[in-house]
Nucleic acid binder design. Sequence first.
DNA 1: TAGATTGTTAATCGATTAACAATC
DNA 2: TAGATTGTTAATCGATTAACAATC
Lengths: 237, 237
Amino acid sequence: MPTVSSEELAAAAGVNSAKLRKDFSYLGSYGTRGVGYDVEYLVYQISRELGLTQDWPVVIVGIGNLGHALANYGGFASRGFRVAALLDADPAVVGSTAAGLPVRHMDELEEIVASQHVSIGVITTPPGAAQQVCDRLVEAGVTSILNFAPTVLTVPDGVDVRKVDLSIELQILAFHEQRKAGDEPTSGDSVLDRAPGPVRAAAAKLRRAAGGTAKSDAGKGKSGKGPDGDISAVMPA
Amino acid sequence: MPTVSSEELAAAAGVNSAKLRKDFSYLGSYGTRGVGYDVEYLVYQISRELGLTQDWPVVIVGIGNLGHALANYGGFASRGFRVAALLDADPAVVGSTAAGLPVRHMDELEEIVASQHVSIGVITTPPGAAQQVCDRLVEAGVTSILNFAPTVLTVPDGVDVRKVDLSIELQILAFHEQRKAGDEPTSGDSVLDRAPGPVRAAAAKLRRAAGGTAKSDAGKGKSGKGPDGDISAVMPA
DNA sequence: TAGATTGTTAATCGATTAACAATC
DNA sequence: TAGATTGTTAATCGATTAACAATC
């Protein structure tokens, strides 16, 4: 399939074709009127804009179960992420092997970051060590940090931090479960249903989205899609 | 602090107070005019609506590094999630202990789900086993599945699946890194800047959001917040 | 009563989408 | 040329927010 139309792509993604064309137009004019988009060229342009064509060396600090799991994670390599080093402060762990790489001591951090031009660090330490590790990463020159520790990190301006809370998705599932069960004290209804007119309508809409069959893959039509179907809007950050 | 006003809460959260009041109103009228919201009562009502006051037994299938890490994850218990069982198909793993719980054989799945009323299953198996495990969870009565395997699962209507891709957040960081570096081939500018008028403005807005200091915690003012600051809008699902 | 603050209406703002000129 | 499809404008839709009556 050498080319694809906005209509086809939009149908596959479950979105409006005008929105798709408009979104693409922000990247430039990569389509051909009367023909569509060249698939290979489009994939390249989008990949490039998202930074997926670059090689990103990362260090993982804290090689417990989660650090191990991430080191082995297949999805990293395919997105251009390369594990430059695994680091730990525990002498009992240093020297062992994970995902074919040796675990090195934290003291080597600065040298590794400098020599391999590492700009992204992943923190998988226990919560108590996270801020200290973060400070050291920043000091060494890392400017983006992915934090799996349940700790809110403080960083200087110019450094990005993203926090991954592994229980967020479980909370979203539980929210839906609760609504599937319809086990509210009063007659199976949520407080939302006791609210007046427009609120009740919004509640019904929420319930349809929650009880629907929102799959993890896109393109199964429009039900459960869009802002109304995204219950994460009402979940805490 | 027994009560709090929408103005205070909005300032702390970095949102508009009218929006906060409107959002709260969807849960009911829990405030008192001239006074504000009773903190304890509000926390309870929101927790209840989100399902955080319930106990949710979950099974974790696939006790490799990631399964181990999740079993040990402190955030689960505090959100009402209780690990009902750890399961694996590998006889070499069955019988070992993780997070103080014995790893049990997959053959016990059906009995555990039925007797402990498990409605949520977590899949941390290798990708090749995920669909098979998923089918069996569904057959056993599980209606919500959290999938960490890099596999798109097919489930019947009425079953919710959420897929966790551990590299998504890394991709977002890399996207920002790319823009910090400003290392586009042509004079440090993105293709976005070569687009006409309104598009260039949107691109500049995106760059401000990307290059800004978006921290993982809320409440540091409005910069980098809101839809414009959420780069995930342009990331693939 | 006077001051404070909610809950909600109405105005504003921005995002989505229908429509269509441009053009392959 | 006729048909197809993009890129963009203008209309529509929905979400956010200013404003304020209700009321503690």
